[in-house]
């Protein structure tokens, strides 16, 4: 069995022992991102901000939004888009987790999981950096927050599990299949509209007009749970139903386990390939 317990334990222990390398890689990513341009930080928040502004315009001034989201829509949007940016950056970036660092992977003997952890971690730190912008808008627009904001660490943990699952599958598979990266870009685009980013999950889960298969997709999609948990801190009605949260969590952990199995199966071949 690939996931033999002793093996998993030994790998986890080496990973913990070499965690310094993970910090190094993450800080290197941030340095590269922020050191060469004084506008570094602006770039991190510019994309979600401008996109949020555009969506706000489209769905507040052009299309009637109805009950699909709560007011103020701009805060509602940012609460979805900032975590989503983390997710989409990981899904579209993880195909290059290993192949993008081929020379390092070929010459430094660290547990290979580190390259995947590094992708998720770097994007996570960027997400944390973007939160002050959200808080600023929450203050300006007087939305306040409720005690469910204390659930955020839980939401972040669930996001980590989900994204690690994705990245552990994508990083090795994309080394073997060179056109996978392009497919992923399309995937991210589809997922963006198929996850409650622009609209609330409540609307979909309660709807009578949506096909049950699609509804099930939302129900079991871990992103639904994560995004709704983030929103719940401001918009209480957005909190995910317990059943949805349980289903999403189960799927997230299943993804992670599948990811670990795939990663270890492909590891020897990936190392030959890069």
């Amino acid at each position: 069995m690939v996931l033999a317990r002793t093996e998993t334990w030994a790998r986890t222990r080496t990973l913990i022992a070499r965690r310094r390398i993970l910090w190094l890689l993450i800080s290197r990513d941030l340095k590269v991102k922020y050191s060469d341009s004084t506008l570094g930080y602006v770039w991190t928040v510019l994309e979600p901000l401008t996109m949020a502004a555009v969506y706000w315009f489209v769905f507040s001034r052009i299309f009637p939004r109805g009950t699909a989201a709560s007011e103020p829509y701009l805060v509602f949007l940012l609460l979805g888009m900032l975590p989503w940016q983390w997710a989409s950056a990981v899904i579209s970036g993880s195909p290059r987790s290993i192949s993008g660092e081929a020379r390092l992977v070929r010459s430094v003997d660290v547990p290979r999981e580190i390259w995947v952890l590094r992708t998720v971690g770097s994007k996570f730190v960027e997400f944390l950096f973007s939160l002050p912008v959200l808080f600023a808008f929450m203050i300006i627009l007087h939305t306040g927050a409720n005690w469910y904001i204390l659930m955020w660490p839980l939401a972040m943990a669930l996001m980590w599990v989900t994204l690690l699952g994705f990245a552990f599958i994508l990083a090795p598979v994309c080394v073997m299949f060179s056109d996978m990266e392009r497919l992923m870009r399309i995937m991210v685009r589809i997922l963006f509209y198929m996850c409650p980013v622009l609209y609330g999950s409540e609307k979909v889960l309660q709807s009578k007009h949506i096909n049950p298969v699609i509804k099930a997709f939302y129900e079991y999609n871990p992103f639904t749970t994560v995004l709704s948990m983030f929103r719940g801190a401001v918009f209480r009605n957005e909190l995910p139903p317990v059943s949805t949260a349980v289903h999403g969590t189960i799927v997230a952990f299943a993804l992670l386990i599948i990811g670990l199995v795939v990663f270890r199966r492909l590891e020897p071949d990936v190392l030959k390939e890069i």
Partner: peptide
């Protein structure tokens, strides 16, 4: 094992030589 393979692996073109030495030695 200290492998002297791909010695320039782990260097980042955008960063200064100083930063790179710190990073690469750490890696």
């Amino acid at each position: 094992v200290a492998p002297l393979i791909e010695v320039t692996g782990g260097f980042e073109g955008e960063l200064t030589v100083r930063d790179n030495i710190w990073l690469a030695a750490g890696l």
